[in-house]
Lab assay of single mutants.
Amino acid sequence: EVTIKANLIFANGSTQTAEFKGTFEKATSEAYAYADTLKKDNGEYTVDVADKGYTLNIKFAG
């Protein structure tokens, strides 16, 4: 089991951190699915992958 950390960075400057656990593939998939649910209210997003994929910096356009 691994932990994927998602740093969520919103257009208004606020930030939030979420963690997803499971296999690497499952946790990564859940992180992207979570970002997709936030897209409606926060706009499109870009992802900067860090720490060999264990950290995702997800920035929303607003």
Rank of each mutant, 00 (worst) to 15 (best):
E1R: 03
E1F: 05
V2K: 05
I4Y: 02
K5T: 12
A6V: 11
A6H: 00
A6P: 00
N7Y: 13
N7T: 13
N7F: 14
L8R: 00
I9R: 10
I9D: 05
I9S: 11
I9L: 14
F10P: 01
A11Y: 10
A11Q: 15
N12D: 11
T15C: 05
T15W: 15
T15L: 15
Q16F: 13
T17G: 10
A18C: 05
A18T: 09
E19M: 12
F20E: 00
F20G: 00
F20H: 02
K21Y: 15
G22F: 02
T23W: 06
F24E: 04
E25M: 08
E25D: 11
T28C: 04
T28F: 09
T28D: 01
S29C: 05
S29L: 13
E30V: 06
E30S: 10
E30N: 13
A31P: 01
A31C: 05
Y32I: 13
Y32R: 08
Y32D: 01
Y32V: 07
A33Q: 08
A33D: 06
A33L: 10
A33T: 08
A35C: 04
A35Y: 02
D36G: 05
D36E: 15
D36I: 05
D36P: 01
L38D: 01
L38P: 00
K40I: 11
D41P: 05
N42G: 06
G43D: 03
G43F: 03
G43M: 03
E44R: 09
Y45E: 00
Y45C: 02
Y45M: 03
V47E: 02
V47W: 06
D48Y: 13
D48G: 14
V49Q: 08
V49D: 04
V49S: 10
V49A: 11
A50P: 04
A50C: 05
D51C: 05
K52T: 10
K52M: 12
G53P: 04
G53Q: 04
G53V: 02
Y54L: 13
Y54V: 05
Y54H: 10
L56E: 00
N57H: 11
I58R: 00
I58K: 00
K59I: 13
K59S: 07
K59R: 14
F60R: 00
F60D: 00
F60Q: 01
A61F: 12
A61I: 07
A61N: 14
G62T: 12
